[in-house]
């Protein structure tokens, strides 16, 4: 589905991403995970075409992504960021349907699609006329997801989608996201710094450190056969104080 070949990016003197290869298979959920500033967001933004690579290529299926075709290809990608990145001046409905209306899709089709998506993300219909500033963090996230899914893209890109939510809502949305990914069968690339979230949502984890992929594989593989000591450290650090406390109690 996605093939990244020797792709790299620098910001000034700082190498954000060393030349990297990555293949992402259709209908899988791949989670880019790692500490802050490791380059995982840059990798996602390179895929979305929001950042131009210094070297290397990205292929979507067999199409090489270029500056000329990216506009067109974006209709095959949905992009969600923290807090949803909603447009503050547009209502929920206008946010979700903006691109469909810009492409002059059929009005009935738009209405039906909106209805489907509201059910999918469990958004009550009375929120449609609200503005983003009038929603809770969790509601904003659901709207962001609806907007990304509106044109039924094959590829879903999520950058720390649940980063700003409190733990209870975050857990609830993690469960819902997992169900939605399973139900839709789309290719998903998700960025998070939370290993538990990554393990819970991802078929494949891509652990990144200092702009370099350390290890790729399912969580179990990372836990049992860590490629480097950093993998162990990262897993251990994320167990957190609570695990230590409950461990001591036993």
């Amino acid at each position: 589905m996605l093939r990244l070949t020797q792709i790299s990016k620098r910001y000034g003197d700082h190498p954000a991403l060393a030349p990297t290869d990555l293949r992402i298979e259709r209908a899988t959920t791949v989670v880019l995970v790692g500490p802050s500033g490791c380059g995982k967001s840059t990798l996602l933004r390179l895929i979305a075409g929001l950042v131009t690579p210094d070297s290397g290529t990205v292929h979507l299926d067999d199409t090489l992504i270029t500056a000329d075709n990216i506009q067109q290809l974006r209709q095959r990608m949905g992009y969600v960021i923290q807090e949803g990145g909603l447009f503050p001046h547009l209502s929920v409905q206008a946010n979700v349907t903006l691109m469909a209306r810009y492409l002059r899709r059929d009005r009935n089709w738009i209405d039906e699609r909106l209805e489907q998506l509201m059910q999918l993300v469990h958004l009550p219909p009375d929120l449609l006329t609200r503005f983003p500033c009038e929603l809770s963090g969790g509601q904003r996230q659901r709207v962001g997801l609806m907007r990304a899914l509106m044109l039924d893209p094959e590829l879903l890109l999520l950058d720390e989608p649940l980063g700003a939510l409190d733990p209870m809502i975050r857990y609830q949305l993690q469960q819902e996201l997992r169900a939605i990914f399973a139900q839709l069968g789309k290719t998903v690339v998700l960025v998070t710094h939370d290993l538990a979230e990554a393990a819970y949502l991802g078929h494949t984890l891509v652990l990144i450190k200092d702009g370099r992929i350390v290890q790729t594989g399912p969580f179990e593989a990372l836990a049992r056969r860590p490629a480097e000591t950093f993998v162990q450290e990262f897993i251990h650090a994320q167990r957190g104080p609570l695990a230590t406390l409950t461990g001591a109690a036993q």
Partner: peptide
């Protein structure tokens, strides 16, 4: 994030200016 979202949505530059940036 707003500018990124608008770009990632696939809106061409002039449409982004008209629909998102100038209203904001």
């Amino acid at each position: 994030e707003i500018l990124d979202s608008a770009e990632a949505l696939g809106l061409p530059p002039m449409a982004r200016l008209r629909l998102i940036e100038l209203p904001l």
